[in-house]
Simulated scan of single mutants.
Amino acid sequence: MATKAQQPTKDPINIVHQHAILCETIKKETLNQKLYTNYSINPFRKLYTLTGKPNSTHDSADGEEDPQFLKIIRRAHKEPEKKFIFPQTEAQEIGWIHKPLIKQDREDRRLHFPRQNSEITKYMDAAWRLKEQTENLQ
């Protein structure tokens, strides 16, 4: 176990050095800072459009649609398979290829097993129907 004599002593906090470190950090941040002024609407938010004033001619003008905005909105509402070439996350890998591997053919008896009723199942089906009808009439 170390005694007090063997433990290294910590220097007291020097405010001048702390201020110099802060100034250096701020200088580095301002050198790498970029001002982003290209503002647009968030395409992942639900848009709520408000109707214009009843007698206003400004709102009824045609040709005011922004094609870039419409392109961004349409792309945001697409499925991930249509937006990206490959899955972006591990969770997207599940179900990425959602087309069936085998064509569904109803005539192929190896893969299609339609419901088949025997005499017993037909009898029990009729009995259940009769029981339900009598219960509903009461």
Rank of each mutant, 00 (worst) to 15 (best):
P12W: 05
K71L: 12
K46M: 12
E90N: 03
G52R: 04
I26W: 06
Q18F: 07
I97M: 07
N42L: 04
K53H: 08
P8L: 13
T89E: 01
A76Y: 11
S60G: 06
K34P: 01
N38E: 12
I15C: 02
L70N: 15
Y36K: 12
I72W: 01
F69P: 00
N55M: 00
A61E: 11
I102G: 00
L50Q: 13
E79Q: 13
S56P: 05
L101W: 00
E29W: 11
P80Q: 04
N42C: 09
N55S: 07
E107R: 07
D59Y: 15
D11R: 14
D105P: 04
I73S: 06
N14A: 10
P100M: 03
D105A: 04
I94Y: 02
Q6H: 05
D66G: 01
P80A: 03
Y36D: 14
E79P: 01
Y48T: 06
H19C: 09
A5K: 15
N38A: 10
T9C: 01
L47G: 01
K4G: 13
K10N: 02
K82M: 11
P87F: 09
T30I: 12
E29L: 14
S56K: 09
E79D: 14
R75W: 12
K99Y: 11
P54S: 02
H58F: 08
N14L: 05
I15T: 08
N38V: 00
L22T: 05
T3C: 03
I94H: 00
N55F: 00
Q18E: 15
E24W: 08
L35Q: 14
I21R: 12
K46A: 13
A76W: 13
L70I: 14
K82V: 06
P43M: 10
K28H: 06
T57Q: 14
G52E: 09
M1S: 11
T25F: 03
H19N: 13
R75S: 02
S56Q: 12
N14P: 11
I26Y: 08
P54C: 01
R45I: 13
T30G: 01
F44Y: 15
I15D: 05
S40F: 12
I13Y: 10
L47I: 11
Q7D: 02
S60C: 05
F86I: 05
F84C: 02
W96E: 05
Q68F: 02
H58I: 10
N32I: 04
E24Y: 08
F69I: 02
P87Y: 10
Y36N: 13
H19W: 09
K99P: 03
H98T: 05
E79L: 15
I21T: 07
K71H: 09
T49G: 08
L35D: 14
L22E: 08
P43R: 06
F84N: 09
Y39H: 12
R74K: 15
E24F: 08
N42F: 07
I21L: 12
T25I: 01
L50H: 09
A20Q: 14
K71Y: 09
L31M: 12
M1Y: 04
K99C: 06
